[in-house]
Design a protein around this nucleic acid. Structure first.
Lengths: 343, 343
DNA sequence: GTGAAAGCGCTAACAC
DNA sequence: GTGTTAGCGCTTTCAC
């Protein structure tokens, strides 16, 4: 197919047709200043006739605000991401901001420029998910006083950048405590995420504290890589099983990993939870549909997204925001831990 | 925390510091025209010193192109969405376009304006997923010759708008044919999606043709609502089971529904695939981790996203694009259909 | 209540 | 190889 483009109407065209000045048209568009009802009607009629849309860039230039929020993240994947984006898109909509997104994974190929595709030049503020931006860029933005809010990670040392995340440590503690206290498990595997994954770090802390509280010595052999990646978790658990490691439970770090761990367990003929209890973290949509349904911690992902937008908008408008927002979680007991719940 | 904003440098500041005109700075920024190497070095030094970033809106206004692609969709959810967005974000990056996204779910609250938050005023072209935009807006854009590409749906009658989707009917046919031909199933439930869900419509066509090919009469009782929503699928299958409907297989419409159907089946004590064979569509990440692993059709979701961007960019740049792009699928046999595959 | 006009920061045509 | 300058389409101040 092929198209011929139609010339777009400008504010001057509208003004001409309505027999008023561009200033008046602008007032009508923005519901600003005072315009006689009759005049306004003419203007609106002209807008309709010409199918006029204010040119966004021209407005931005004149107003000196973009009315746009930028979102940066390292990679797009999984249920978790979709929920977070839903919250962010919803929040942006609520506050009347547009959403410009940039995923770091796409960059390498073509970015030779000296700038990120999203930043001060095209947004009023940035939301950065986990380690979406290198420290240098973060420092630069901070030095310029450009509004930034972090999601699911903390600023580098010395940078006072607000961040929004969830109560990882205490929740992990409760989860592992449940495994030990209620189900008598003592050889609990923890699948740790990558170094830079802060959530995993705090969850491991909670895991360790729970063991200590029950006077169970920490066994390094039980802590293995696999958090935050389904396939890695699957491979890791398969390996532990092959190696004949003795364990009676797995805390998978997150639900995605739990999924992989479950597959490995079933493939090896282990019964869950009879032979090995399994718990995750996040409560992604699929958790309740696993077989057995997964015991986990519900993270209010969508709400985290909304809250982050709220903090950012506040920062943009007032220059102020809470340095740390910690959203509460909830233990979700299903069957994979050994409980026998009707759900 | 609180911030003080720093004044941003303009092209004039850079020109001043480097002792050249703004035109020269512009040439350096855009690698356009000719600039003496020595001069360019000075300019770059000035840019560095002032931490200068070209104001995006000013560039847009002067160039008369936004270099931005808009993405519109009705709702954000599931693995499918994440994969699609990954493809789109990747494609946009490859072609050097920014990505502005808008989810219809956010609108109602605050949009009183006469325009969608994404359109001719702030993008060079639009990607519209399923029924993300009402027909009226589509017609308006089309009338203006504004570049639009549809993903996973067709244009309303009479509108020649390019669309990118996948081979639904033929794939559904092969899937159901497998259930009948290989596993001897004859009472196959189909979980249909909502009316406006085109994919579901074509998949149902494939389902019907496969039955006909095997001379199995279509039984209306076997076609029930539930496609494209996990919870609806679960409830529907639970009801069919309660009602004592006789069936030996389920074609769930998509993997999300298959997940819900599986839960309902297991809760009712049915064995999959022994009592009831189950197949899905899409091959979302989780499909292989279900228990039993799900037999399904692999839809190249990420590639669909990339291809859509490719078509849109071509349309923007040349005014031409393919009216229909149909991406091929692949049957993925796992165990939920009754096959006994090592995977 | 309305209009004139000065920018907003940049690009690109043209002149030198 | 580089500078001058006229827009790009809008908002907003200041007059009237």
């Amino acid at each position: 197919m092929s198209e011929r483009r139609v010339r777009r109407a400008t504010i001057a065209d509208v003004a001409g047709l309505a027999g008023v000045s561009t200033a008046t048209v602008s007032r009508v568009i923005n519901h600003a200043g005072t315009v006689a009802p009759e005049t306004a009607r003419h203007v609106r009629a002209a807008i309709e006739t010409l199918d006029y849309r204010p040119h966004a860039a021209a407005q931005v230039l004149a107003r000196n605000r973009t009315n746009t929020i930028g979102l940066v993240f390292p990679e797009i994947s999984g249920y978790y991401f979709a929920s977070l984006l839903r919250g962010i898109a919803g929040g942006a909509g609520t506050y009347g901001y547009d959403l410009l997104i940039y995923s770091a994974q796409e960059s390498a190929t073509y970015r030779t420029a000296f700038q990120y595709p999203v930043g001060e030049q095209n947004t009023d503020g940035l939301l950065v998910f986990t380690d979406g931006l290198p420290e240098g860029e973060l420092r630069r933005l901070h030095a310029r006083g450009f509004p930034v809010v972090l999601i699911h990670w903390s600023p580098p040392a010395g940078l006072e950048i607000p961040s929004v995340t969830t109560e990882n440590k205490a929740s992990a503690y409760r989860l592992v405590d449940h495994l030990i206290g209620v189900h008598g498990r003592r050889r609990i595997v923890f699948l740790a995420g990558p170094e830079e994954h802060e959530d995993s770090h705090w969850r491991e802390k909670g895991y360790r504290q729970a063991l200590e509280a029950h006077r169970i010595p920490i066994d390094g052999a039980l802590i293995a890589a696999g958090g935050s990646d389904r396939e890695v978790a699957r491979a890791t658990v398969a390996r532990l099983l092959r190696d004949g490691l003795d364990f009676d439970a797995i805390f998978a770090g997150d639900d995605d990993s739990a999924t992989g761990a479950l597959t490995a367990l079933l493939e090896a003929g282990r019964r869950v939870p009879e032979d090995v209890a399994l718990v995750g973290f996040d409560d992604i949509d699929i958790a309740q549909h696993l077989n057995p349904p997964l015991t986990t911690v519900r993270v209010p992902v969508e709400q985290i997204g909304r809250e982050a937008v709220g903090q950012l908008v506040h920062l943009i408008r007032t220059g102020e925001a809470d340095l740390l927002t910690l959203l509460p979680t909830q233990l979700v007991i299903r069957r994979s831990c050994g409980c026998n719940v009707v759900h």
